[in-house]
Nucleic acid binder design. Structure first.
Lengths: 148, 148
DNA sequence: TTAGATGTTACTTTATATATTACATCTAAC
DNA sequence: GTTAGATGTAATATATAAAGTAACATCTAA
């Protein structure tokens, strides 16, 4: 099982830039929210820029979304930052002299591709806009409960 | 990232037991096909037994499927051997004092659950029987091509 | 000119899946 | 019963990828 947080951190960065667009958007400020480090944030921002989701300018802490949040899906972010991009992994060291070992890799690859497509179709339905909405809803609920 | 091959190896073990039910089914023989080691095979077999997919008897190399291959889905195997069982992972170290950091974990958990459900629904459609069929089809095709 | 930002790379640390080893326990054959 | 060889199980070691850290070239704006 993988323990990569690249997708979660990338969504975090985009949500932060959307919500705090009038505040300090330096990699250091964002890293403080992610509780990670500025270099990781910058690396992820480069990946998001290359994927056309983010616009940045070297020397200035002025990143901005390259598209409306409603036009950025979780799948877009996933494909930006997950290099390999497979949720399930084939064991590529099986014995080719065995009926099972000699064929199961391709068999599983096809099966896993179907699972991947189903997962990605769902990811395509989730937008940054809906995630940011959900963040705000939770924030309001916390405030409401806190003042009871 | 370090990939887990537990699901692939578990499917391999079940397919091997189904296909080679009249041959040597010791953990050593199966490990030779997986190109792994007997202890790993035994651990996975224990997980499959606990999940009700496999019947084993201590002291004897006589494992057998506890259900018909058509009644064993990829999802059954996945749930047997993947302890945590989440394809996507939330970064659980974000700053609670920030609107984003304080809420994104739950927001992403809900979103990831939706993706997980879509993936698992697809896994439920894939049976061990169909995977074994595919293995045999590929084996026949290899033989046909080889004798041309 | 300079302070402070991003872009980028190299190296270190940490986490964890798998390999390895060992051994208790069980089964079947003798 | 004894024994060979199997599973069940745990402890430890190893390998490797993710994340952390540090350093620095480059760019921007004051």
């Amino acid at each position: 099982m993988r323990y990569s947080h690249r997708l979660s951190d990338a969504v975090h960065i985009l949500a932060y830039i959307d919500i705090y667009h009038d505040s300090d958007l330096s990699s250091t400020a964002i890293a403080a929210s992610v509780e990670s480090n500025p270099a990781l944030v910058r690396r992820l921002m480069v990946a998001l820029r290359r994927a056309g989701l983010l616009a940045t300018q070297q020397g200035t802490a002025t990143p901005r979304l390259a598209r409306q949040p409603a036009k950025i899906s979780l799948l877009d972010v996933y494909r930006s930052v997950e290099e390999e991009g497979n949720l399930l992994h084939v064991d590529d060291k099986t014995n080719p002299k065995c009926v099972v070992g000699g064929n199961i890799q391709e068999t599983l690859r096809v099966a896993y591709d179907e699972v991947q497509r189903a997962a990605e179709a769902q990811m395509a339905q989730i937008t940054l806009a809906s995630l940011v909405d959900d963040i705000w809803t939770r924030e309001r609920e916390k405030k409401a409960n806190g003042s009871q």
